[in-house]
């Protein structure tokens, strides 16, 4: 049996930060892994890949309860905990598996779990860690035999010099808002497996289920319009933009090289470019400015009784903090 522990966030155990390869975009109630992008979260996609790659059981440990909204699979258990590392340690021991894969999100890493496990067996070491060209990644395989010699998952992962598995696939560390936009454009451009969820209406034009695009609106590929979102007349959506689920872009607005996150209203006659918007928060990537728009005519969150897909209004506000105080955590084992 193969078990996997997916950690969302990194609160808890001392020393975890030294172990982790990098810091990712964080917001008040979670991290970027739980935000719907091209119709699906990084968390959901990672779980799917694990299950496809011969993993029998997955435990998702998150510090925020909303992450449960993106999970709906019998092989997947969700556990909320303040100390995610402690909880992950308990779950890893509880699998009684021949090997445990540990993934800490939110970098987006495309790897074949079966290939990783085979490499781990071939190397004969107790711990294997995934690497990309630019450093270590937060993906490990651990032999349960070493659990007895350690008193926590962090010490377990850092206990010996691990075997290095070079990930042959696509990696996006999602450390900044630019990385997030890069992931979108790479997904739309088919440069990775982060593909849009929905129907490809015409080459490069993707529509989620129930998306409404008025007749005089123009979609210029590549673009993604998420499920149940609405694009009003005379709008133009282009240059790798994505409008996520249940968002509305009103009459005549142009959206270029931008991301509109779920449940966001974008007003009439605007020119949105090189930006990420979430509710009434706007992050302009070229100017490096994060703004809260107080005018509901321009931008506002759409209140929805349905469970939000992991997006919280404070997402971009915290991105601002991350951008100002961006410092990668020390990398271990390089």
């Amino acid at each position: 049996m193969i078990g996997a522990v997916v950690i969302v966030g990194s609160s808890g155990e001392d020393g975890a930060e030294r172990l982790l390869s990098s810091s990712t975009i964080q917001f008040e109630h979670g991290c970027v892994a739980c935000i719907e992008l091209l119709g699906r979260t990084v968390l959901g996609r990672t779980i799917e890949e694990l299950l496809r790659g011969r993993v029998d059981s997955v435990a998702v440990i998150a510090s925020s309860p909303f992450a449960s909204a993106v999970i709906g699979h019998e092989q997947v258990g969700f556990f909320a905990a303040q100390d995610v590392w402690q909880k992950a340690w308990e779950k890893a021991k509880g699998f009684h598996a021949e090997a445990v894969i540990v993934v800490r999100l939110g970098a987006y890493v495309e790897f074949d779990p079966a290939d990783l496990l085979q490499f781990h067996r071939d190397q004969g070491k107790a711990v294997t860690r995934a690497w990309s060209d630019d450093g270590s990644l937060d993906v490990w395989v651990v032999d349960p035999e070493i659990f007895a010699q350690n008193n926590g998952l962090v010490s377990c992962l850092g206990s010996e010099d691990p075997a290095r598995y070079l990930v042959p696939g696509y990696v996006n560390r999602l450390e900044s808002a630019r990385d997030l936009r890069q992931l979108i454009t790479d997904g739309l451009g088919a440069r990775c497996h982060f593909r849009p969820q929905g129907t490809e209406l015409r080459p490069g034009i993707w529509l989620g289920h129930g998306a409404e695009v008025e007749r005089t609106a123009r979609l210029v590929a590549p673009v993604y319009i998420g499920r149940a979102s609405k694009i009003a007349d005379q709008c133009l959506i282009t240059r790798g933009s994505n409008v996520e689920s249940n968002a509305k872009v009103d009459y005549g607005t142009v959206i270029e090289d931008s991301t509109v996150l779920s449940n966001t209203y974008v007003g009439i006659g605007l020119d949105l470019s090189h930006s990420i918007v979430d509710g009434d928060n706007l992050l302009h990537l070229q100017h490096g400015v994060s703004l809260k728009i107080s005018d509901p005519v321009v931008l506002r969150p759409i209140r929805d009784n349905r469970v939000r897909s992991g997006v919280d209004g404070s997402f971009l506000a915290s991105l601002k903090v991350r951008n100002v105080a961006m410092s990668s955590l020390p990398k271990k084992g390089q």
Binding site: G269, L270, D271, L272, S273, L282, H284, H287, G288, V289, L291, I293, V298
Partner: peptide, 12 residues
């Protein structure tokens, strides 16, 4: 300020 520039651009 960059903030006002962004808003003026946004509002065309």
């Amino acid at each position: 300020s960059p903030e006002s520039e962004v808003i003026l651009e946004l509002m065309r």
